[in-house]
Design a protein around this nucleic acid. Structure first.
Length: 491
RNA sequence: CGGGGUGUAGCACAGUCCGGUUAGUGUACCUGGUUUGGGACCAGGGGGCCGCAGGUUCGAAUCCUGCCACCCCGACCA
């Protein structure tokens, strides 16, 4: 099968779509807007999950599970929340089918109408806070630090594999605290966890910041986020962490008794990342030959391809290959020895490049003679011969080097495509000609933000956390501004 | 939901304008043989509700109507 994918320069969107499908990550399903995550794609997601789950547990969180269905009435308890999600909810109205006498097949049984409709969760704040009401009585019950791995449904108009699907997988953390300060600290802590994960594991550099009022989570007082840059210069929101204040505590009447015996509302946070991270991972590093995976998240880190003519040769090569396989595995490196005789070496090379396997070892008759192996790295496509007794150490080091290199490449790209604009003309010119991230002054009003969005399609991705205070004037309104914010076109 | 485009073998496409033998090509698949350091070659073979449903016609992949799905551009989107 010809697996060539379109080039990025030709058509970036098409390149992404084809890559996702050809690399065996995911495909569209029979259900509109919902994808099938295929084994290789799911293996990458599982690695992300395992890593994140460990990070959550190390920071004191526990996993739990709450229902998929949420009673409709729960949504209306928090006004901003319902407004934010109402437009994209899937609703369950009946609980039974029956045979269709007229048209054949089955039809919804009108006698099986639910008293109260159920909403398929688009996020779980409401159902979780309803439980928290019963779980929290006293300051001794706090903080409550819960995470849930789940699927959620948001009825999106236009979907794209991983980046925006009607149903997606994610984790959502929901915590309750005695004080505002504690909840704020939690919100920021989880933002740091996300940023660490993105940079150290996904090798994707991110900008940390706070969302403007327009972009804030429905029901939150403050939304923190990490924003990544894709290879086409567009921004991708990779994770969010929300400070909910006492909004949900008040909506669901979650109070605790203080040491002094007074009743107080608890303070909440919620935070999440989704299978959208897969999109970020793919778009940040991959090239026209296929995926480029960071070693820390690659399901297969090293693949060994034998090159042989006769069965005796394969036998000898297998001995060497299996020795490397077990030695590498002993060091915690995942290895696949592809000794299938149904595909030729060249075919396998192309296949594992498409799948983004970081390191490839080829062993052939020449290597047996010389006591070497050929080692190829996916990120730079460099190949070299390495002596067999140095191979294991070499690879261990090489995996670290690849992890670092692809991070650096992405970080350099992000820096090269981050610019400042001091006038609206310059802003529009930069956005049009170069894209990328643009730091510019903004007067702090939603009105200005929306006008800029309408005229240029760029939005304020965030107000960066590390930005220096700098007096200036808004590029749009000319009004005073205390610092630059990050603008970009976004996914 | 609005504008545009596309649905033909697992995948990529031709054929559709102008209806007419048995619907083709590449690739993938199966069999046999030769091969194997970058997607092998030769020979033979199998695979099609032509997106779905209706209609026009002696006859529909082709014409008409409706629907569905996907892609692009908008709108929408934490």
């Amino acid at each position: 099968m010809s697996k060539a994918i379109p080039s990025r320069s030709e058509d970036y969107s098409l390149w992404y779509n084809e890559l996702v499908k050809k690399a065996g990550l995911a495909e569209n399903s029979a259900v509109r807007g919902s994808m099938v995550i295929k084994p290789y794609g799911f293996a990458i997601w599982e690695k992300m999950q395992q890593t994140l789950d460990k990070m959550f547990k190390e920071s004191g969180h526990e996993n739990a599970y709450f229902p998929l269905f949420i009673p409709k009435s729960f949504f209306s308890k928090e006004a901003d929340h319902v407004e934010g999600f109402a437009k994209e909810c899937a609703v369950v109205t009946h609980y039974r089918l029956k045979n269709d006498e007229e048209k054949g097949g089955v039809t919804v049984d009108p006698d099986a109408k639910l008293e109260e409709e159920l909403i398929v969760r688009p996020t779980s704040e409401t159902v979780i806070w309803d439980s928290y009401k019963n779980w929290i009585q006293s300051y001794r019950d706090l903080p409550l630090l819960i995470n849930q791995w789940a699927n959620v449904v948001r009825w999106e108009m236009r979907t794209r594999l991983f980046l925006r699907t009607a149903e997606f997988l994610w984790q959502e953390g929901h915590t309750a605290h005695a004080t505002k300060e504690e909840a704020e600290a939690e919100t920021k802590q989880m933002l740091e966890v996300y940023a660490d994960f993105a940079e150290k594991f996904m090798a994707v550099p991110v900008t940390k910041g706070v969302k403007t009022e327009n972009e804030r989570f429905a029901g939150a007082l403050e939304t923190y986020c990490i924003e990544a840059m894709m290879q086409d210069g567009k921004a991708l929101q990779a994770g969010t962490s929300h400070f909910l204040g006492q909004n949900f505590a008040k909506a669901f009447d979650v109070k605790y008794a203080t040491k002094e015996g007074k009743d107080e509302y608890v303070w909440g946070t919620s935070w999440g990342v989704s299978t959208r991270l897969m999109g970020a991972l793919i778009m940040a590093h991959s090239d026209d030959d296929g995926l480029v995976l960071p070693p820390k998240l690659a399901p297969i880190q090293v693949v060994i391809v034998p090159i042989y003519r006769k069965d005796e040769e394969l036998e000898k090569i297998s001995e060497v290959a299996n020795k490397f396989k077990s030695e590498l595995q002993a060091k915690g490196i995942s290895v696949k020895f592809d000794d299938r005789d149904t595909q030729k070496p060249g075919w396998k090379f192309a296949e594992y490049e498409l799948k983004g396997v970081p390191v490839r070892i080829a062993i052939g008759p020449k290597d047996l003679e010389k006591g070497t192996v050929e080692i190829a790295r996916r990120d730079t496509k460099e190949k070299q011969f390495v002596e067999q007794d140095k191979t294991v150490d070499f690879i261990e080091q090489l995996l670290d080097e690849i992890q670092e290199n692809i991070y650096k490449k992405a970080a350099d790209f992000k820096e090269e495509n981050t610019r400042t604009a001091d006038s609206y003309e310059e802003f529009k010119e930069l956005l049009e000609s170069k894209g990328g991230f643009i730091y510019a002054h903004w007067d702090g009003t939603s009105e200005t933000e929306e006008k800029i969005k309408a005229e240029t399609k760029a939005t304020i991705r965030c107000i960066p956390l590390n930005s220096n205070e700098e007096e200036g004037t808004c590029i749009y309104s000319g009004k005073p501004s205390k610092g630059r914010v990050l603008f970009a076109k976004a996914y």
